[in-house]
Design a protein around this nucleic acid. Structure first.
Length: 426
RNA sequence: GGAAGGAUGGCAGAGUGGUCUAAUGCGGCUGUCUUGAAAACAGCUGGAUGAGAGUCCCGGGGGUUCGAAUCCCUCUCCUUCCGCCA
């Protein structure tokens, strides 16, 4: 959410942001509505001020036993009460409409973000590692998993429908190892490990920005006012809703684990092979709450990226980093990097990590603030990035480390979390 | 699942229709005093919106009333006891 005053004063900046983000919000309509709200609010508040004045007069009259004056004032108060009663519902309704529109206003992208209409205009700017070449006929991740009996999709579908999977045997152990590895590494970097609820109330989704627009991607728990989170980011944002933090506790650095659920609406027929796009997965997420300072946000943005890069480098996976263009980055973001790992069977890089900074956009929605060194209350800045998301990361991991004899090498960094095991299927 | 009791400022806790601009205590900040600190004393000690006057916020929503922290309805959450249970 943007500051309403900012929108009033810089409508063109906001319109341009909406334009480059392919967001069709009508800023002029919002501002027209805003003027109605302000005018009506003024009227209602005037009436209430008079009412408060009258109230004192009524007491005074009662004390002076002036029954006549008292009755007159009460009659006048009745009129004011009627006026308020007649106009307040409309004021409330308009205010709510304005709020609902505000939720749809995108954040202003940083000038360094490439302007583009969709993912085809994202800009790769860093490559690490050599694209894997095999001197033998390599398998794709799904065939590898079948070969080593690491997955059972047919039975998973029997249990839970399409886009389900059962990890079995060493794949199950590998996923737990990846999660432990990521939590462990991030904890050593000073991030506080969290295991957070994977069900949350709607305010957490509004706060993080998944609602109202992404509602169709989220599972709802029947009769419970609860929804399944698609990322721990939702829960962590919700944790701090309505709080005013002390400036000296910032930055808060978290690494949160949660199961994640996504409907993947509108992706029929996409990525149907294997475990790339699934309804349920496990993710370890980096999350930062820092002071309202652009330089500091940018510092942590780069830091979060570097952390993720280190994790992937430890897993010995070739990857590239892309600067996501305005049309692909999502409403809340000021800037966004995706990390894409090389997937040999597809001969292309595919997204495994997503790094974003959002300035105050989430903090305003979640009403999450802090008191700065001068005692002034400000909205915090928030940032997030994936640490590890599985099973998707298994795809480049298994493919990249497959050996000529069909076995799969476990990268050294993971071995401590796999009981020292060096290979799968050898 | 059953029963009862609760939700007030950073914390504790009063307030059951108008003097609430929310008592009091603790904590915090500032000052006096002090070599420094403590103690003592004094003052200060939320948030939103608005240019301001003002308006709003006593868990959320609705109602009664000229007027609600206070009365009524409803929802959420918390605590205790019982039952069940990983």
């Amino acid at each position: 959410m943007l500051d309403l005053t900012f929108i009033r004063n810089h409508p063109d900046v906001v319109k341009e942001a909406a334009h480059v983000k392919n967001n069709s919000i009508d800023i002029d309509a919002l501002l027209a509505l805003d003027q109605k709200v302000v005018a009506l609010q003024h009227e209602v508040e005037e009436a209430r001020a008079k009412q408060n004045q009258l109230s004192k007069g009524i007491q005074q009259a009662a004390r002076e036993k002036n029954t006549e004056l008292r009755n007159d004032l009460i009659a006048e108060g009745k009129k004011l009460a009627e006026f308020i009663k007649a106009n307040e519902p409309e004021l409330n309704q308009l205010t709510e409409e304005r709020y609902n529109l505000l939720l749809l206003v995108p954040n202003i992208p940083d000038p360094s973000a490439p302007v583009g209409k969709d993912e085809s205009e994202n800009v790769p700017f860093k490559y690490w590692g050599e694209k894997t070449e095999f001197g033998f006929t390599a398998l794709d991740h799904y065939d590898l998993m079948l070969k080593h009996n690491l997955v059972d999709i047919e039975r998973a579908v029997k249990v839970a429908g399409s886009r389900s999977y059962v990890l079995r045997g060493e794949a199950a152990r590998l996923e737990l190892a990846l999660i432990s590895f990521a939590m462990d590494k991030m904890a050593r970097k000073g991030f506080t490990p969290l295991i957070v609820p994977s069900m949350a109330r709607d305010f957490s989704f509004i706060g993080s920005g998944q609602f109202p627009k992404g509602r169709d991607q989220v599972y709802e728990v029947k009769d419970q006012d609860l929804f399944l989170v698609g990322t721990a980011e939702v829960s962590i944002t919700g944790m701090y809703k309505d709080e005013i933090l002390k400036g000296d506790e910032l930055p808060l650095k978290f690494v949160g684990y949660s199961p994640c659920y996504r409907q993947e609406a509108g992706t029929y027929g996409k990525d149907t092979r294997g475990v790339f796009r699934v309804h349920q997965f496990n993710k370890v997420e980096q999350y930062i709450i820092c002071k309202a300072d652009h330089e500091e946000s940018v510092y942590w943005f780069e830091q979060l990226l570097q952390n993720a890069e280190e994790l992937i480098q430890d897993l010995e996976l070739p990857y590239r980093v892309i600067n996501v263009c305005t049309g692909d980055m999502g409403d809340g973001k000021v800037g966004m990097y995706d990390i894409e790992c090389w997937v040999p069977s597809e001969g292309r890089y595919r997204e495994t990590h997503s790094c974003s900074y959002l300035h105050e956009w989430q903090a305003r929605r979640a009403n999450l603030r802090y008191r700065d060194e001068n005692g002034k209350v400000k909205f915090v800045h928030t940032l997030n990035n994936t640490a590890i998301a599985s099973p998707r990361i298994l795809i480049p991991l298994l493919e990249t480390h497959q050996q000529e004899d069909g076995s799969i090498r476990i990268p050294e960094a993971l071995r401590p979390f796999m009981g020292g095991q060096e290979y799968i299927g050898r």
